[in-house]
Nucleic acid binder design. Structure first.
Lengths: 199, 199, 199, 199
DNA sequence: TATGAATGAGTATTCATTCAT
DNA sequence: GATGAATGAATACTCATTCAT
């Protein structure tokens, strides 16, 4: 018990240290040694909890991706209209805001965004945010008589689009400033979700 | 004259060598030495034509991105229907086919796709393929009374979505097999372009 | 004639460029390319005027060493007492002042100081400053009935001591701050020149 | 215990290997790889004991400088006269002899001599040679009623002069052969120490 | 004289990973 | 479980110098 707890704590400490360092210096410039030093454990200990460096990178990205989507979802909830397409538009905007405000973070997760939504939704024990999102999707599916799975996939693709366009625009300024692409993204989301509902 | 020509050839040789090696072994596993050896020039010569390794990586990606899109466009042309939204759907399918068939290539450009369309279209002297694509967009814009620029942006975002979803699905199998996501992508494209036209 | 002049100009330009760059960035961090660029000539041209990089480094050091000693000598002249030992002390102080004020310069010539005095004095056509210094030495030699050559050697050794101690102290802070070593140096100079005169 | 011992041994092995190689090939022509190979350790191990290459260069120079001075001091002791100024003259001669006989060594330490005397003398636990030298200085200071610290500084400067003149003369033949400068150096030492004592 | 494209030798340093303790 | 000493592979980049025009 106690041991199990200790282990959990150590792993958490490593994750936390990695999280902080990755954000500050990026993945490449953070060595395993940096992480273990920051976590206050020996280098070898790292390999008791993670297979290799990539393992912890992925783990942190997953956590981060989830956090970002959660944060954006909560922000959307605060201003939601009740119209599904519109609300997804708000979600996208919240997402874009967050990414634009966290350039270093965007650089870190680079294009490694992981949308754990699809694994999570199998999880009945998932956290409330995801349950709520899933509920939104289910309601909308019922309301429009569409397949929930299909709707989920559609939303996934649209969120992917947000991430991809945002990365290119924010990190490289290609092909234009995000301010110009944002309404386009929203337009696509709105149109594609309305159209589907109407079919 | 002669010298200038020689320089052009040398740069091309470097690019070609890099292109081949990157595809075969990936960016990371290809050293500058590998490239110069393959191109038959001295190591130092590399730095007369490219600032650093990343410089040539980007250059190759740009070329590749253009080629991919061109190839997909040509494939679409062979089966185009005349309906813009439908045709874009065909373009997306051609794109996805190509990416699915060239996993190593996808791994190489990672998510680093560069859509040079937006710079190119400034270029009146662009190659025929791009001129044709641009023409399609102009026609559709006229037909629907929409702004051409906006339409271009919309198509850009949709193509970005293709790339992003394809990468995730093909390279990591996340969140599902491409076969399941492909119709979703096409649906979004169709819906979002029809809706825009109808507005 | 004209050609000869042009050549001289180019060589001078290279020296001047090297001088400036060496002082700013040090010898190591200045490439031949830097020098030729700054001088406005092609790289290959460099080798028409200097055998290799070391050649120009030495040339610049020689010029610099002479300048430093000349400057110090002139400074001393402005306050000379007429007492030889005392005046040499003033010369040392001027030298130390100069070196302390030009740390980058000191770093550049490192320990490469060249005292061209001994070649110069063969030169009847040497510049006035050196003639004056030599005159001082001759007078002092006569006054004390000592051999002029010996006196020159003694002064050379004392000046060497200045350079060596200054370098260590200024560049590395070893073994103490120059302010503490300065009176010691002056003491040695004074004592050793007075003693010789008195013998 | 055991581990600590092993580490000491490894560092010593590295130093020894570096010492030998530096003397044989000079600092520049000795790579870190050469050193580790000679020491029988992995390349990476080097960086567990030295910050970088310069670190070990300095370390070896310090050791070498100490050895040289020690050796010269012992040689002087064998023929000392009891007269301080005279004895210092003998020390200088021994020093010059040593340097003249070890041209490669002189080339290696260049003018990088480190006189560790001033740190050492703080060390009550210093080795016997230094204790003896220090004792000489203390005695002389007492005998002449001068400040010991000042005397130490004076000797430091004089020894610096030896090194500087020797380097120039032996390595570059400037401005003359050492045989001509040696008596001058001794004269300065003698005069400057006698004068001080007499003041 | 002058050019500048081409050369290619040369190396310090990092860091993920292992394993003896 | 934990440690941390040891490993050694792996590589981009500079720059003095040459030589064909």
């Amino acid at each position: 018990m106690k041991i199990e707890l200790k282990k959990q704590k150590k792993k958490a400490a490593l994750m936390q240290a990695a999280y902080t360092l990755f954000l500050k210096q990026g993945t490449e410039n953070t060595s395993v040694g940096d992480i273990t030093t920051a976590a206050g454990v020996a280098k070898g200990t790292f390999y008791l909890y993670f297979r290799d460096k990539q393992d912890i990178v992925t783990a942190v990205i997953v956590v981060l991706s989830r956090q970002i989507l959660e944060e954006a979802y909560l922000k959307m909830c605060a201003v939601r209209t009740g119209d599904f397409a519109e609300d997804m538009t708000l979600l996208a905007n919240a997402l874009l805001d967050f990414l634009a405000d966290n350039k270093p973070l965007l650089g870190f997760i680079e294009r490694g965004f992981r949308w754990p939504a699809f694994r999570e939704r199998m999880n009945a024990a998932g956290n409330p945010v995801w349950q709520s999102l899933r509920n939104d999707l289910r309601l909308q599916a019922e309301r429009t008589g569409k397949d929930e799975e299909e709707l989920i996939r559609r939303v996934y693709c649209l969120v992917s689009m947000c991430g991809s366009v945002a990365y290119s625009s924010i990190m490289r300024g290609e092909p234009e400033d995000l301010s110009r692409l944002r309404p386009v993204i929203c337009g696509i989301i709105r149109d594609s979700l309305r159209a589907e509902a109407a079919e």
